[in-house]
């Protein structure tokens, strides 16, 4: 069975990547799953300086969904480079480092710090607040996100993915970042969400609001992938609520080249491996031998 996927010069052995922030740095996951068997690994978001993250509670459960407000806790790029990245790079698969900043300069500095590392590429998390714009997320502001990608492109020639927030002027932002030189899009991050703790008469999360992930968001993100592929025909990593091989094929059928699995890994560390195995079974059921044959099938059929 041929599961390989080519995106902007990179060949992925299969379409299943692990999404940012949902697999630690592999320290424990490696006991349940051969990380080298995956199409790729997208690291937890890394910033210039270490970040403590938000006060607890950081997670709340909703029907088929998880709301998180982790607050981008991470060790900062220097410790990441020295202690965290080397063992991740030992896995024989693509490693994309997810980075973020509160200013364009901070994004650039993180990318600069990583420029000599043998990683496969960078994923920009533009869902974080932009200090210069009073906290408006980069990804909600086409002009700023354009400037960010253009600036980065002056010094960073490697594989560059922009991970979009699922709300806001998504299509305009997507078009802008591609014009500015991004190779691909990750569609999408979590949905802004709220949980209330009535018993204690307050919000359930320490930070107040959070981001919704998990099976609850799958139909929403699937539609985003469909819309963006239809309009842009650009390479897309579909990411939202994937828990089965069938989900992966649905995303690919709607125009995703590959996918990222997030919350499913938290539910059971064996899930990414199961999802990978199911892809082959599902393809077989559909009478296909190549994943590529399903790609964007929705736009090829008569309906």
């Amino acid at each position: 069975m041929d599961l390989t996927v080519k995106i902007a010069g990179l060949t992925f052995k299969n379409p299943v990547l692990l999404a940012s922030g949902t697999w630690g740095f592999g320290e424990k996951l490696k006991n349940y799953l051969d990380l080298s068997s995956l199409g790729g690994l997208v690291t937890k978001g890394i910033s210039l300086k270490p970040r403590e993250g938000n006060p607890p509670p950081r997670i709340a459960e909703t029907p088929c969904g998880l709301i998180n407000a982790i607050g981008l806790e991470n060790p900062g790029v220097e410790i990441f480079k020295k202690h965290v990245l080397p063992p991740i790079l030992a896995w024989k698969t693509h490693v994309l480092v997810n980075i973020f900043g509160e200013t364009i300069d901070e994004f650039l500095a993180v990318a600069e710090a990583l420029k000599d590392e043998p990683i496969s590429g960078l994923e920009l998390n533009v869902s974080c607040p932009n200090v210069a714009k009073g906290g408006l997320a980069f990804g909600h502001d086409p002009a700023t996100v354009k400037a960010l990608v253009e600036e980065l492109r002056k010094t960073y020639p490697g594989f560059l993915v922009v991970k979009l927030p699922p709300v806001g002027p998504v299509l305009e932002v997507a078009r802008t970042v591609l014009e500015a030189g991004a190779d691909a899009l990750t569609v999408a991050n979590t949905y802004p969400a709220l949980a209330v703790d009535l018993t204690n008469r307050r919000l359930a999360l320490g930070r107040g609001t959070g981001g919704l992930s998990g099976p609850a968001i799958k139909p929403l993100t699937l539609k985003l992938v469909y819309d963006l592929y239809r309009e842009l025909k650009a390479p897309i990593f579909g990411c939202g609520g994937i828990t089965s091989g069938r989900d992966v094929l649905e995303y690919i059928f709607c125009g995703a080249k590959a996918v990222q699995v997030g919350t499913a890994t938290l539910l059971d560390p064996e899930n990414p491996g199961k999802i990978l195995a199911e892809i082959e079974q599902e393809l077989e059921k559909l009478g296909e031998t190549r994943l590529e044959n399903l790609f964007a099938g929705l736009f090829k059929s008569k309906h």
Partner: peptide, 17 residues
């Protein structure tokens, strides 16, 4: 005690000050 999603140090959700 803390609310947990993964139990494996992967989500960073289960913190105490």
């Amino acid at each position: 005690e803390a609310h947990m999603a993964c139990g494996l140090g992967m989500c960073l959700g289960c913190v105490v000050k």
